[in-house]
Design a binder for these strands. Sequence first.
DNA 1: AGCACA
Length: 275
Amino acid sequence: MAHQQPFDPYFLHQPDYGGNGINTLFVSGLPDDIKAREIHNLFRRRPGFDSCQLKYTGRGNQVVAFATFVNHQSALAAMHSLNGVKFDPQTGSVLHIEMARSNSRRKRKPGSGAYVVIDNRNKAAGDAQESSGDDSGESEADEAPGDKGDIDITKSAEAVDGSETAVPSENEQAEKTVNVVSEDTVDGVSRCSTLFIANLGPNCSDDELKKVLSPYSGFKAVKVRSRGGMPVAFADFEGIEQATQVMDALQGSWLESSDRGGMHIEYARSKMRKS
DNA sequence: AGCACA
């Protein structure tokens, strides 16, 4: 019985389990000429990334993707950093990312690439053709939220196949899918070596946060501010990279004092004043 | 859904 009590949020007090167990993201809003490689390049830099798959749903030219991470937090962090991002300035397509209904069961095969393509376009037309080299059996691992029922649009059987199934080579240099305006700006988000932490419980203290944050390299200081309402905190780090690591590691995780959900962590708008 | 301290 892996049943979680929906009415008791305290079943996951361990920082390692600061989530509902879902580590896969559902991605829509993709242009229909998207390549699996692009999905891979979009997510591969995100901490905790494991693998991804591009799926032609068979509904027209609809394309969705699933990205799997090592845990819920890293999936959440990636979702937060990429959701709403304008993916293609030409077509104006904007990424819509949410937690998948279920985790990807497809394990990354050793020696094969970190991404895979599932093409249901022909299946929808009654044709049983496999995308190259796919393992037989279930090729479905996840279901899109709000994707119940099979509305067969027996249309579009254009074979735009090939090239996506290629194994990604070690091209570490040719990836500018994510817009980097300046070193400190990614996807239009200004990064900062100070983090802003919200969604804290009313009793959250500096000490509690310090205990959680101090194990991370580069941690300098944390301050909780209450301003009457719910507290927020600012955590300062040596550099942006260290701050990012902590944000990715702790995004969505619960503290003992949490009562409204896990921590919501963003880059602060300004650096903590030097002391 | 909330960003201070100088």
